[in-house]
Amino acid sequence: MKPKALVASALLLALCGPTSAAASNPALQKCMDSANTTAAMVGCNANETKVQDKRLNTAYKTAMAAHEGARKQQLQDVQRLWIKYRDANCAFAGSATGGSIDQVNGSSCLLDMTQTRADELENLVGP
Rank of each mutant, 00 (worst) to 15 (best):
M1C: 12
A5W: 15
A8K: 09
S9D: 04
S9P: 01
S9L: 01
S9K: 13
A10R: 14
A10Q: 08
L12I: 07
A14W: 07
C16F: 09
G17E: 02
P18G: 14
T19G: 06
S20A: 04
A22S: 08
A22L: 12
A23S: 12
A23Y: 06
A23E: 14
S24R: 15
N25P: 11
P26A: 10
P26I: 10
L28R: 02
L28V: 00
Q29C: 00
D33F: 01
S34F: 12
A35P: 10
A35M: 11
T37I: 03
T38C: 07
T38L: 03
A39Y: 04
M41Y: 06
M41T: 11
N45S: 10
A46H: 10
K50W: 02
V51T: 13
Q52W: 05
Q52V: 04
D53I: 12
D53L: 08
K54G: 05
L56R: 13
L56N: 01
A59R: 13
K61D: 08
K61Q: 09
A65D: 10
A66I: 09
H67W: 15
H67Q: 15
H67K: 14
A70N: 06
R71V: 13
Q73I: 05
Q74D: 07
L75T: 03
Q76I: 13
Q76G: 12
D77Y: 06
Q79Y: 09
Q79H: 04
R80H: 15
R80Q: 13
W82G: 06
K84N: 15
K84P: 09
D87V: 07
A88H: 07
A88L: 08
N89S: 13
A91K: 10
A91D: 13
G94P: 07
G94T: 05
G94L: 08
S95Q: 11
T97E: 03
T97D: 01
S100L: 11
Q103P: 04
N105L: 07
G106K: 03
S107Y: 14
S107V: 11
S108H: 01
S108R: 02
C109Y: 00
L111V: 00
L111K: 00
T114S: 01
Q115E: 12
Q115R: 12
T116M: 13
R117A: 02
L121V: 02
E122A: 09
E122K: 09
N123Q: 14
N123P: 08
N123M: 12
L124V: 11
V125G: 04
G126F: 08
